[in-house]
């Protein structure tokens, strides 16, 4: 078994960890780092429940190896709230009832946050494209799209 130590930035903090080469990034986040906000759904890059940000880009953590994050910045759902304060996107998901069972929610919030970081004024179509790789089996898409639009608006008003 090939083990190694990797250095990376986890939710803003420089971190070292021991990994095995054949560990998916998702298993590393959940089992080694103990951050279980990132969900394990299909493990095939289809459902988006495991979405995290690598260097600010949304990716499926099931479709990456832990070894790939050496020297890079990893953001998980646990890194979205700052100083005990939920982010605007998180608050809008609650306000707009954009969740039912909640399993897809961390992935949805990661995709939405990544979208708003590059596109502060998305059209509804752009919001839908940003979450095209996130399945919600409660099928609450309308509320999710609405919440992301409201979050974009709220962030623009503050700035």
């Amino acid at each position: 078994m090939s083990k190694r130590i990797i250095s990376f930035v986890l939710n803003g903090d420089p971190t070292d960890a021991v990994i095995e080469d054949n560990m998916s990034l998702l298993d590393f986040i959940r089992d080694t780092l103990g951050l279980t906000g990132t969900k394990k759904g299909c493990e095939q890059g289809e459902c988006g429940a495991c979405t995290v940000m690598l260097d600010g880009r949304p990716i499926n953590s099931c479709m990456a190896f832990a070894a790939e994050i050496e020297g890079h910045e990893l953001t998980t759902i646990e890194g979205i709230a700052k100083g005990g304060q939920l982010s605007v996107v998180q608050k809008k998901f609650i306000e707009k009832w954009a969740l039912q069972c909640g399993f897809c929610t961390p992935g949805m919030i990661m995709s939405a946050t990544a979208l708003l970081s590059v596109n502060p004024d998305p059209t509804e179509e752009e919001i839908r494209v940003a979450i095209e790789g996130n399945l919600c089996r409660c099928t609450g898409y309308a509320k999710i799209v609405e919440a992301i639009g409201e979050a974009a608006k709220a962030i623009r008003e503050v700035q």
Binding site: G45, G48, T51, L54, R57, P58, I59, N60, M63, A64, S111, V129, A130, I131, E132, G133, N134
Partner: peptide, 9 residues
């Protein structure tokens, strides 16, 4: 191709 997440990787 696939999804936003896949196209980001």
């Amino acid at each position: 191709i696939a999804s936003t997440q896949i196209r980001n990787k």
